[in-house]
Design a protein around this nucleic acid. Structure first.
Length: 319
DNA sequence: CATCAGGGCCCTG
DNA sequence: CAGGGCCCTGAT
């Protein structure tokens, strides 16, 4: 599917803003709906029934930051559509986030000080919809990165759409109803294993529009947890990712998976393995910013890995 | 060759 | 609330 129509959206983020560390997360596993180079992220997006190809560009300076989003589409888009899309982009990448209070509260922490200086203006982000994030969460469960990558790619090739824009070909997600009506055997043929059942069942409430992502954002913390946990295949780990990245609860850390526990032990405690409850107590000192603080340290180690070999980390990643 | 655990979660007792 | 089972895959 070739996308010929092109529109430009310009977004002025709040100060301070750091483009690269916000628009690229080296800790995310690689997927073929996105591509990155410094100052530029390609990203497909299925939104409002349209399959879009987007290029996010760093279009400003440190003092006057600007995100330029090139929107490619096969069919024309109305100005109303584009305005709504702009707001969605602002939400997903937290371009309205005011970090000043966080920096004030946390800025002198010995571990965070230098990281904040390096990534001054970093925000968490979720490049996908809630539904798509749930799919990714299911792909991560009980396996290693390599398999997560290959399972998602298989799903793209069977249920997604290959888009071409800016001379780049990237896969775009499917509508939930496509997977809600898939049968388990055809999914299992893609070697997703027992996750097939979760994929189907998690798609159903979205296909039937029983869950509205926009409405969910306005519900209380407890209601959000309840709704998400009621979905088949969603447990505390997937919930944790979504509460922070997708629903912007900057204090949300309840669960630490074994893999994260090992990495956290090294980067926060310089030890082999620290008990989870001890970790949570330590993170508690960052109060209502603890999730965001952990995100900063977490991102830092992945950026470091891009530049130099960290052998203990390589062993834990298990590509 | 077999066995095991991995960016969890569901279900049972 | 603890613990077994689950699709696969590569590491050992």
């Amino acid at each position: 599917m070739k996308l010929k129509e092109k529109y430009i959206l310009e977004i002025i983020p709040t100060l301070p803003f750091h483009f690269n560390s916000t628009f690229y997360k080296p800790g995310h596993f690689p997927s073929n709906d996105t591509r990155w180079e410094s100052g530029k992220r390609w990203q497909t997006m299925l939104w409002g029934g349209k399959r879009l190809g987007i290029i996010y560009k760093d279009g400003g300076s440190k003092k006057n930051p600007k995100v330029v989003a090139e929107i490619y589409s096969a069919s024309p888009l109305t100005s109303e559509f584009l305005e709504n899309l702009k707001n969605e982009i602002i939400w997903r990448f937290n371009l309205n986030l005011d970090l000043r209070e966080f920096y004030k509260y946390i800025g002198n922490d010995p571990l965070l000080k230098s990281i904040i200086k390096k990534f001054y203006g970093l925000r968490p982000m979720s490049y996908s919809s809630l539904y798509e994030y749930l799919i990714i969460g299911i792909m991560l469960q009980n396996t290693v990165v390599r398999r997560s990558v290959s399972m998602l790619q298989s799903l793209f090739e069977k249920y997604g759409t290959l888009l071409e824009y800016d001379r780049v070909k990237l896969w775009c997600h499917w509508e939930p109803k496509v997977m809600a009506t898939a049968n388990e055997e055809e999914l299992r043929a893609l070697k997703v294993g027992y996750r097939a059942k979760s994929l189907i069942k998690v798609s159903e409430p979205f296909a039937q529009e029983e869950i509205n992502e926009i409405e969910l954002r306005n519900k209380s913390n407890e209601e959000q947890e309840k709704i998400l946990l009621s979905l088949y295949g969603v447990g505390p780990q997937t919930l944790g990712y979504i509460m922070l990245d997708g629903l912007h609860h900057w204090d949300y850390i309840r669960n630490i998976s074994p893999w994260e526990q090992k990495i956290y032990s090294r980067i926060f405690f310089n030890k082999e393995l620290v008990p989870v409850d001890k970790m949570l107590r330590r993170f508690g000192k960052w109060g209502k910013w603890k999730g965001l603080a952990v995100h900063y340290v977490w991102e830092d180690i992945w950026w470091k890995r891009r530049n130099k070999h960290i052998s203990w980390l390589e062993k834990l990643i298990r590509l």
